[in-house]
């Protein structure tokens, strides 16, 4: 057998084939496909489907005392909106919520600063978190009632407890995950102390911090509603939890559903409007999260 001489293959050159009559290289997607690519559209479609399922099931059941339909719920909500009671109660709840959330974040910031600046601070945070994070905030309500009595301070106390540990834990985990190269890049330009935390650590750990803020928000909201259900209207007027509790006592099931719906809607809005906007403007834009 003779060896084949591979170098005997001829070389060639040729001009690329003409593409100019094939239309554009980039063509826009059809409209429905573009719409379907939008998260908002897909989620809205899901919401409408869920609402439809509710309405159909409730009409088949035909028992408004146990399971009112969506239209009945919306009617009850409209009545409460018109009388202004629903708005007042929502505002009362939100007011307490914002107070507790902000205080929780401030205390979390103090704890995390301690934890990043010293080893003993880290141990303190780790121990406290391990002790208190698994403890349901609502379990502290009896104690809060003894200390602060019926009223806003008790609610704020339990909300702080539900926000603090989740946020501090996440923020601290995020800080520890900041790559060494980024840290050195920061210290190289002479950053230290609070400027180092503010200009380097916080943006670098922002995905974890944001996750902590979201978890903290959800914990705060559910703790607040639960606490209001337990001791109802304490101050001058009750919040959404009290609204639900009161309606149940009067067997106005549609109003109970209306109250729950408001709780859900506020949760949805904060999650998919406020947090979503923060995400889009920060971590998504920076390519830290997809």
């Amino acid at each position: 057998m003779t060896a084949i001489d591979l170098s005997a293959r001829p070389e060639f050159e040729r001009a690329p084939e003409d593409f100019s009559n094939q239309g554009a290289v980039e063509r826009p997607l059809p409209l429905w496909e573009r719409a379907w690519n939008s998260t908002a559209v897909r989620r809205a479609v899901l919401l409408v489907l869920l609402a439809l399922v509710w309405e159909v099931y409730a009409r088949l059941l035909a028992n408004p005392l146990l399971f009112p339909s969506l239209t009945e719920t919306l009617e009850a909500m409209a009545r409460d909106l018109e009388s202004g009671i629903l708005i007042r109660r929502t505002l009362t709840s939100l007011n307490v919520l914002v107070l507790g959330y902000a205080a929780g974040l401030a205390i979390a910031a103090v704890f995390t600063t301690l934890a990043v600046s010293s080893r003993i601070g880290t141990d303190l945070l780790a121990t406290l978190t391990a002790m208190f994070n698994p403890l349901p905030a609502i379990a502290l309500l009896p104690l809060a009632l003894i200390w602060f009595g019926l009223g806003v301070p008790s609610l704020v106390f339990v909300i702080i407890h539900s926000v603090l540990w989740a946020v501090a834990l996440n923020t601290h985990t995020g800080f520890r995950a900041v790559p060494e190269t980024l840290r050195m890049a920061g210290r190289n330009v002479g950053l230290n102390g609070i400027r180092y935390v503010a200009l380097l650590l916080i943006p670098a750990a922002f995905p974890a911090i944001l996750a902590g803020l979201k978890i903290g928000w959800a914990f705060a909201w559910r703790t607040l509603i639960a606490a209001e259900l337990v001791f109802g209207a304490s101050a001058r007027q009750g919040g959404l939890g009290w609204h639900i509790f009161e309606a149940r006592a009067q067997l106005e099931t549609a109003t109970v559903f209306g109250g729950l719906l408001v709780v859900i809607l506020i949760g949805l809005t904060v999650e998919s409007v406020i947090f979503r906007a923060i995400e889009a403007r920060t971590v998504n834009r920076w390519g830290m999260q997809r």
Binding site: P179, T181, A185, N188, A204, F206, T282
Partner: peptide, 16 residues
Amino acid sequence: PDRMMVFQEFEQLLPW
């Protein structure tokens, strides 16, 4: 900052 450092890793730029 009188001794600016350039590191080996690409992840030395601030992503934000």
